[in-house]
């Protein structure tokens, strides 16, 4: 058994175990932390497959940003665990069905489940000779699939606008801070020197 194969089985094993723990952990915060562990192992497998750019992007985007927000929300909410347990059996058939469909799809893609050998991995990540896979990805993304890429950008923009419209509400008169005005405020507009007679005050 080569070192690479051993590392692959280690990463895959931990990844699956972590994924199981995500759905079975009692504490939702633990679930999110196991999800992060699963992401990490997936990134490790990307590195093994020679897709170091995807591995890093997976860590930056999913672990560094998305999972932080998950963790944020889960920590802020006081989740009732018993209520969550109740739905478990009800949703189990649907979940199992989705899992089964995914599994069948994977079978159709790879023909067999021989992921451990090099051939399917090489087929999945064809990197041209003498080119880092960042260059290869960039070349494909910005030439062949340029319009699809732009379209994805526009869809994201629409999503941003949608999120802002959903959360923006008029709170009525709010005292807003105008930094520009504060910075440009001069001394005469703010301070006044007055001579005050004793016992009279400023009338």
């Amino acid at each position: 058994m080569t070192v690479a194969l051993f590392v692959f089985y280690l990463l895959a094993g931990v990844c699956i175990a972590a994924a199981v723990m995500v759905v079975s952990a009692r504490n939702p915060v633990h679930s999110v932390l196991f999800l992060i562990l699963a992401f990490f192992n997936a990134a490790g497998m990307f590195v093994l497959a020679g897709a170091e750019f995807l591995a890093m992007v997976l860590v930056v985007v999913y672990v560094g940003a998305v999972a932080v927000l998950f963790l944020f929300v889960v920590m802020m909410l006081d989740i009732d665990l018993t209520a969550m347990r109740e739905g478990f059996l009800k949703f189990l058939p649907v979940g199992a069905l989705i899992g089964l469909v995914l599994l069948v799809e994977l079978f159709l893609v790879f023909g067999t489940l021989s992921v451990g050998t090099a051939a399917p991995i090489a087929a999945a990540v064809p990197v041209p000779e003498g080119m880092s896979n960042t260059e290869a990805l960039g070349g494909v993304l910005y030439t062949e699939y340029f319009f699809a890429f732009q379209l994805a950008g526009i869809i994201l923009l629409v999503a941003i606008i949608g999120a802002i419209t959903l959360t923006l509400r008029d709170r009525g008169p709010v005292k807003r801070q105008d930094i520009g005005r504060q910075v440009h405020r001069e001394r005469p507009a703010a301070v006044q020197l007055r001579k005050v007679d004793s016992g009279k005050g400023i009338g």
């Binding site: 992060i36 750019f53 890093m56 860590v59 930056v60 672990v63 940003a65 932080v68 963790l71 880092s132």
Partner: peptide, 25 residues
């Protein structure tokens, strides 16, 4: 000396938040 050194640094620095969030919680 990896090809995606800058991305690796960025990834690691974006993970720094976990230690703090986990400690706080």
């Amino acid at each position: 000396d990896i090809n995606v050194g800058v991305l690796y640094l960025f990834a690691v620095s974006s993970l720094g938040v976990y230690g703090i969030v986990m400690a706080g919680w």
